[in-house]
């Protein structure tokens, strides 16, 4: 299973500038990876190219064994006619009920299960939204700022749990948090915008796992590489 892009270029109709061009990367192994870069460099556009929502690009994007790619983003809502718990009940395949309960506990959502989605805070809404995607079939899950408005400790706890629970899946985590992606991600695709060539560089992350020790110097080195790559 792999996901590879070769010489991708994207330009929106009636605009002169490229969102990105000559963008290449390869994710050869499952894991928790990141799409990093400042606003407007095309992270969401690249995500939508990967999931097949955008077709107006040039270049080549290939994948093997990755039939189901899901894209989730942080502004999604659940319908308002029933509680979060009832919605989760409906969209959970029977075989994943125990997984759902485990995720509800890790995501800190036990108390909120009887509430309406609209009554939750933004961070709680984002956790509920991400949780329902994790209960679906997928080979690649793109998380577009899916943990925005969630406090750092909970975010790290959630990501570590996802890494433990889904070792066979690919994740692309879109985030602006350099510490987080450096520490937790396996590979970080740093997007640099259409005016720079190449438009993307892949930086290896520290891929921190539950129970591991983290060398501060190594983390700082990775952060520096990411900052250098994006500048």
């Amino acid at each position: 299973m792999y996901l590879a892009a070769q010489g991708l270029a994207l330009k929106y109709p009636n605009t002169a500038n490229y969102v990105f061009k000559n963008l290449s990367f390869k994710l050869a192994e499952p894991g928790f990876n990141a799409l990093f870069g400042p606003s407007g460099v095309g992270k969401t556009s690249l995500a939508k190219i990967i999931t097949g929502e955008i077709h107006t690009f040039s270049g080549d994007i290939r994948s093997k064994g990755m039939q189901t790619c899901l894209y989730s983003y942080n502004l999604e809502r659940l319908p308002g006619w029933s509680s979060v718990g009832k919605h989760l009940e409906k969209i959970t395949p029977p075989a994943r009920r125990s997984r759902r309960d485990e995720l509800i506990s890790v995501f800190g959502l036990e108390e909120l299960i009887g509430k309406r989605f609209s009554r939750l805070s933004l961070g709680q809404q984002n956790r509920v939204n991400l949780l329902r995607y994790l209960l679906q079939d997928f080979h690649l899950l793109i998380m577009d700022e899916s943990l925005a408005n969630v406090d750092e400790l909970t975010r790290e706890k959630i990501i570590l749990k996802i890494k433990d629970m889904y070792p066979e899946a690919y994740f692309l985590y879109i985030s602006h948090n350099v510490v987080e992606v450096s520490k937790l991600c396996n590979e970080i695709i740093v997007l640099r915008g259409g005016l720079k060539e190449p438009s993307a560089t892949v930086v290896p992350g520290r891929n921190f796992m539950t129970g591991q020790e983290m060398e501060r110097a190594e983390l700082e080195q990775t952060m520096l590489e990411i900052v250098n790559a994006s500048s």
Binding site: Y71, I91, Y133
Partner: peptide, 12 residues
Amino acid sequence: SDIEHFYRVTGR
């Protein structure tokens, strides 16, 4: 879109 997206991408 913000509600329907999930149901579309998951085929529901």
